[in-house]
Simulated scan of single mutants.
Amino acid sequence: MIDLTHIDELARRLSGLVPPGLRESREELQENFKAVLQSGLAKLDLVTREEFDVQRAVLLRTREKLEALEAQVRQLEAGNAAPAPSDTPAQPH
């Protein structure tokens, strides 16, 4: 969810830029600015910082597990690459 205090502040700044002749409807303009900003931001596919941090932590754990599994596969492959015992039967002495 977007922090509405930032949207309110931006709407106030925008309404402050309105020419003096239109200042009578300043509150109405400020509400319109706020509505347009909220609508525009809602259309964007944004996540909160908290959601981003959670997904980043999940990705980090996944990467660590993947690296551990890759190392394990390399060890198994190295073990299978070792020379196999000879197929010729041992001859008695």
Rank of each mutant, 00 (worst) to 15 (best):
I2E: 11
N80R: 10
A90S: 12
R13Q: 14
A78S: 13
I2F: 09
N80F: 05
V54W: 08
A42P: 00
A78L: 00
Q72C: 11
F52D: 01
H6M: 04
L41R: 04
L37H: 02
H93E: 10
E50G: 02
L22Y: 13
V73S: 06
L59F: 12
F33M: 06
L46I: 11
E67L: 12
G40V: 10
Q30T: 08
G21T: 03
L66V: 15
R13F: 04
T62H: 13
L4H: 03
L44W: 01
L14I: 01
V47K: 12
V47R: 15
L60G: 08
P85Q: 00
K34P: 00
I7L: 12
A81Y: 08
V54H: 05
A90T: 08
E27C: 06
V18D: 01
L60C: 04
L46Y: 05
F33T: 00
L60N: 12
S25T: 05
G21N: 06
A71M: 10
P20V: 01
T88I: 15
E9G: 03
A11D: 01
S15A: 14
F33H: 11
K43P: 00
R26T: 00
F33V: 02
L10R: 15
L41Q: 00
R74S: 07
L69D: 12
L14K: 13
G79F: 03
E77N: 14
G40H: 06
E51Y: 05
H93N: 12
L66T: 14
G79L: 01
T62I: 04
L29F: 15
G79R: 07
E64D: 09
A90H: 08
K65A: 15
G79S: 12
D53I: 14
A35W: 05
E27G: 09
D8A: 12
N32Y: 03
T88S: 09
L59K: 08
T5N: 10
L41C: 08
V36L: 13
L60F: 14
